[in-house]
Design a binder for these strands. Structure first.
Lengths: 180, 180
DNA sequence: GCCTACATGTAACGTGTTACATGATTAC
DNA sequence: GTAATCATGTAACACGTTACATGTAGGC
């Protein structure tokens, strides 16, 4: 089956940005990629080690003044190749995203209507907050990086987040209506 | 952190339907719940065992003629309670759905435009097929179970799938436009 | 002295998939 | 006889999170 290890490619990708250390990668994840990818230190450091072992990157110990020592990672030519290879490979199976909201709703006939409505209503509020967050990030990108062509792809992913979240909010609204 | 084991509740939920055996549950998953939940035998059987141990269900060996023996599971009162309890509990952390499409796109400036467009275009085709599948299922439900109130909640989840898929298709279209 | 941010790392655990093993029965 | 469907189950592995351990440096 040879499933590709996406985490490895996420890190390879981050090495093409200004991210040099595991710590920086975690920060980048938690901001820019947060709405579609997540990663913990428990994965980052072992994966970085593995990437070096495979010759896809090199490490360099660097002392900073005023800050602890860091390990800086740099993509090798082989690493760049590996990344491009992954980028141009077609999507494998579209993984089924597990959706807890729908799982609960599916069995909600065992609950009274008011509770179900409350449940969806609560979810709707979460979605509205999320939408605001996306819009804030979008504005920040547009203000700070007018010149950066890199931001273009970032905006694509944000646009996705916004569109899907809006569709979800509308679904919440329609479903509540149907329940009443 | 006491994270709830969703798989256990999925099975508890299935036991409120006509599903009595692990085999039936797998089939049900692969049809009705397929677009938002998935489960393998490697999870189903051990979880059923655990559910019985916890006193949430009982087992019964049944011989069928013309077919192999089966183990039929029935929810206990405690099991029903546990399910209702879960249904009325609020959503914990909204888990970040890992999105391979967005991950690739995020790093796509290292690829030529034509390839990126091809990639999104391919994804769009998958989505269109998916949408057709949803619509077919929807029609089947409406034809076969006009009387069944149970179908109502199933249709809610399908409506979700349709709306989100449509929004995704539109995003593909818009993104391809922007890339050109 | 203590808190925060920076920085790296591992061990234990939980979850989930895949591949394999086993066997009944029916239809061809 | 052999393929397909029905039916149950486990062991090995892959993946990911959490909690913990360790240490530097700056600001209060």
């Amino acid at each position: 089956m040879a499933k590709t290890n996406h985490t490895k490619y996420a890190i390879l990708g981050l090495l093409t940005t200004s991210c040099r250390t595991g710590y920086q990668m975690k920060q980048m994840m938690d901001t820019s990629l947060n709405h579609f990818w997540k990663i913990s230190y428990g994965q980052i450091y072992p994966t970085l080690k593995q990437i070096v072992e495979e010759g896809l990157a090199t490490v360099q110990d660097t002392t900073q003044d005023g800050k602890p020592d860091i390990k800086e990672y740099y993509l090798t030519t082989k690493g760049e190749e590996e990344l491009r290879n992954w980028l141009s490979s077609p999507l494998e199976t579209i993984p089924v995203a597990k959706n807890e909201v729908l799982l609960k709703l599916f069995f909600s006939r065992h609950q009274n209507k008011a509770e179900t409505i409350e449940f969806i209503s609560h979810y709707q509020k979460i979605l509205q907050e999320r939408l605001r967050t996306y819009e804030e990030i979008e504005q920040l990108i547009q203000i700070h990086s007018i010149d950066k062509a890199d931001a273009k792809y970032w905006l694509f992913t944000l646009d996705y987040g916004k569109r899907i979240t809006k569709a979800e909010i509308e679904w919440c609204h329609a479903t509540i209506e149907k329940l009443n």
